[in-house]
Structure formats: C-alpha cells, structure tokens
C-alpha cells in the first residue's frame, strides 16, 4: 500500500498533461498524525502534496456530487462502490471520471491506537505489516491486522469494482468472515434491552452531523433534520431527537450503504452508528440478495419491483 503514491502521482501527472482531467481528488497529510485529509489537486505541482498510507479512510466519492468538471479520483474498494452508487443515482456521469483504483488492505483505526498507548501520538511510522507509534514517553509497534478499522476488518470488497487504471495488482479478498456478528447480537436482545443498547450507544452524540457530512450518500440539498417547514425532528440534543436522526439517516442509506466507515471515522465522540446501517445492509442481502455499488447494470432493490419481492408484512 505504501508504494502506491508514486504510481498515483505518475497517473495524475499523465492525466494533467493529456488534459484528461481538471482536478484529481486524493489525500494530503493532515495536521495531526493519523488524520489524512481529502485534497483536490488542480495541477501537477499539487500532486506532490498527495499521500497514500493507512490513514486514508474517508470516502472520496463524497466530493463528486453534482460536479461538472472532469475528475480523476483515487478510489479504494469502498470508494469505488460509492462511485457506482453515485453514477446510478445520477449524481455524476461515468464519462466525467477517470478512476484510479487502489487495492486496499484496510485502514488504520486511529482510536484503537490512541486508546492502546499511554499518551498523545506524535509520530506514526507505517511499514507493510506493522504500525510504529511514537509519543513523548512511549514507542510501540502494532500489527497492522490488529488495529484495522472495524469495517475494514470485515470488508469483502477490498479491490475497486470500477476503475480505469489500477495502481497495483489486486489484493486477495478476505473470505470466511462473518460480517454481521454484531448485528445478530443486537437482534437477539429483548425489546427493552435493544432500547437501552441504543440509548447507551447514542448518548454521547452532540448532533454535530459529522457522520452525515462525511457520508457520500447524504447529499440531499436540505437534510430532513435541517428542514423547518415542516420540522420533522427537534434540533436539540434531546434523546428522542438524537435517536430519530440516527434511525432515519440509517433508513435513507438502505440498499445504498457500502459500509465504508466514514461516518464512524469522522464522529468526534466515536459512536459506532454503523450497526444501524449494517442491519439494513444485512436485510438487503437476505431479502433481495443485494450488495450496494457492485455493478452499474442493476437498479437497486428499493427502486425496482419484482413479483417475488417479500411482502408477508402486508396483512
């Protein structure tokens, strides 16, 4: 994964010289360790600022919505699936895009690392299989596999599903993984316990909407929580309003979410709201045999009708 950047720069350079794109979307080093930020390179000079390592977890498809220019975009497996969703939903045209596919081995969970070390992380050195973290009084090395983002650990589509060019050979996909263990665990709780579980899960939420803003699916010009005529949901941090926001946002992602983990990654208080979207993802898989963003040729289950759609809930 670490050698990718040279190839990304090389491809970017070529795209600019050939005049194929106006902008290349990728990642730049952030102001803090383990916090790379998205960047738009508009010239080959900008490309030098681009980086690629295990901290590029944010989903770049988010920056494509309704853009008019020609774009080169660096895409991991999940980004590429969200690009497919964007194309299906007419938010961008395929011929506007030059997709630089990046086979991905999973991104680092910065929270897991911060929690595991005694102080503030000031330097991170990444190698192929390990992450070395340095701070004032410590210097520790982690196995890459142990500190992956939770969604990356259960990812089944590490290679881009759509691309114009790959920066490296595809990586081996993970197999034999139970993606929905956590969801099933919640499912087995009683009604009261479930309610308490979500009470607990969502109690730190401050309604900053970072999850919504980082989500490539949340592109509505006016989100339902921002509407005032009518006002669907209270704007404060009342428990019920917080829950309404999270529950409804999850519903809006049904059959579209690729579990890229941007929501959880961007959350300032580390809420795992992915259990909600994952439940809907699991249902889509069970009921419609559907996984979001794998192909341009099929319409998503929620905008098609099939005579054999499950309908036993209608009495």
């Amino acid at each position: 994964m670490l050698g990718y950047i040279d190839k990304i720069r090389e491809i970017g350079e070529r795209l600019f010289t050939d005049g194929k794109v106006d902008v290349v979307i990728g990642f730049a080093k952030g102001s803090m360790p383990m916090m790379n930020e998205p960047m738009m390179a508009r010239s080959s000079g900008d490309l030098q600022k681009m980086v690629w390592d295990g901290n590029c977890g944010i989903n770049l498809a988010n920056y494509l919505t309704n853009r008019k220019e020609k774009i080169g975009i660096v895409a991991k497996g999940c980004d590429s699936r969200n690009i497919v969703t964007h194309i299906i939903e007419n938010k961008i045209k395929r011929d506007q895009l030059y997709i630089i596919g990046v086979p991905c081995k999973g991104m680092i969970d910065r929270r897991a690392i911060s929690k595991a070390v005694p102080g503030e992380v000031t330097e991170v050195i990444e190698t192929r299989d390990s992450i070395r973290v340095k701070g004032r009084d410590f210097d520790e090395t982690f196995d890459r596999g142990d500190v992956l983002q939770k969604n990356c650990a259960v990812c089944l589509h590490r290679n881009p599903v759509i691309y114009d060019e790959l920066v490296a050979d595809p990586v081996v996909e993970q197999t034999g993984i139970d993606r929905y263990e956590d969801v099933r665990k919640i499912d087995s709780l009683s009604t009261e316990e479930k309610w308490r579980f979500f009470d607990d899960l969502l109690s730190p939420c401050v309604r900053c909407y970072a999850c919504r803003n980082a989500c490539p699916l949340c592109y509505c010009p006016t989100c339902f929580v921002d509407e005032s005529k009518p006002q669907w949901v209270g704007k404060g941090i009342d428990d019920i309003d917080i829950k309404t926001f999270h529950f409804l946002r999850a519903y809006h992602c049904a059959g579209r979410c690729t579990d890229c983990g941007s929501c959880e990654r961007s959350c300032p208080v580390g809420i795992n709201m992915r259990v909600l979207t994952k439940k809907l993802e699991m249902d889509c898989k069970d009921l419609f045999d559907w996984e979001a963003g794998l192909t341009l040729d099929k319409r998503p289950p929620l905008d098609t009708y099939r005579p054999d759609d499950p309908n036993n809930f209608i009495k």
Binding site: I186, D187, T191, L276, K279, K315
Partner: peptide, 16 residues
C-alpha cells in the same frame, strides 16, 4: 424497527 427496540406489532401494513 424491531432492531431499534420498537415492538413489531406497533406498525401494521394492510392493503384494503
């Protein structure tokens, strides 16, 4: 809705 801790029987859907 079941998943969120709202009983299934609170929502009914019928075609009449």
């Amino acid at each position: 809705m079941d998943f969120m801790g709202i009983e299934r029987d609170r929502l009914h859907l019928s075609w009449i």
